[in-house]
């Protein structure tokens, strides 16, 4: 087939219009969410004292951080799904959750605490946190990668890592309602390690499947 012939067939196919990347990504995440919810309710469940915990600003801060991570990762990944886009000018969105955490840590430092710093940092649930966040992330990561495959990211590994941040942010939101460690020091340590793991998996798979 010579190039003029190819162009003729492409023009004939012009009527077929693909869905926007954001729409496909949203559908994929909605399809995967029940799997992560199933893992959550089967293995973890909401902590029993959730009603009193909600009055603790550090409990609420966990959700602000994880949701900010998920939201900024969604925004950045949609931006990066355009071939001419780069992280420049957009990457700072990813600093929002980190900024919230830093603010939380300084806030906690200024208050009188019953437990010493290292105890708060190590907490009681570090292992559960390190396992649960990546585990609940996996279905969401698969969905995010599926959705972003619809786009055309110029740097597939970067886009994959951000898909990992998105999945981890959503999974950590679920996990936060189970975990009784509310100290921002705990969140900054263990949530971050779990999230970094998912981002690394995302980068690895993304570098293969997000090429177009």
């Amino acid at each position: 087939m010579d190039t003029d012939q190819l162009i003729r067939t492409l023009a004939a196919d012009n009527a077929q219009r693909a869905q926007p990347v954001g729409f496909v990504l949203m559908l994929a995440l909605l399809a995967a969410a029940p799997i992560s919810l199933l893992i959550f309710f089967a293995e973890l469940g909401v902590r029993p004292d959730v009603m009193t915990a909600m009055r603790n600003p550090f409990f609420d801060l966990k959700f602000a951080v994880t949701l900010a991570l998920a939201a900024s990762a969604i925004a950045v990944s949609l931006h990066l799904s355009r071939p001419e886009a780069s992280l420049r000018g957009f990457g700072w969105w990813l600093l929002v959750p980190a900024g919230l955490l830093v603010a939380g840590i300084s806030g906690e430092m200024m208050m009188p605490q019953r437990a010493p710093m290292m105890t708060r940092l190590v907490g009681n649930n570090s292992r559960a946190c390190l396992i649960s966040i990546p585990l609940m992330s996996l279905p969401l990561l698969a969905a995010a990668l599926f959705g972003l495959r619809h786009g055309a990211p110029t740097r597939p590994a970067v886009a994959g890592a951000i898909a990992g941040l998105m999945a981890a942010g959503l999974a950590a939101t679920l996990y936060a309602s189970h975990c009784t460690d509310d100290s921002p020091l705990f969140v900054a340590t263990w949530y971050t390690i779990g999230t970094a793991l998912v981002a690394a998996i995302g980068a690895l798979i993304g570098s293969k499947v997000l090429r177009y």
């Binding site: 190039t3 190819l6 162009i7 492409l10 196919d13 219009r17 693909a18 869905q19 926007p20 990347v21 799904s81 355009r82 071939p83 786009g151 055309a152 177009y212």
Partner: peptide, 11 residues
């Protein structure tokens, strides 16, 4: 050309 065609919704 094929990539332009299949990814034109990202423009």
């Amino acid at each position: 050309l094929l990539a332009v065609h299949s990814k034109r919704h990202t423009w």
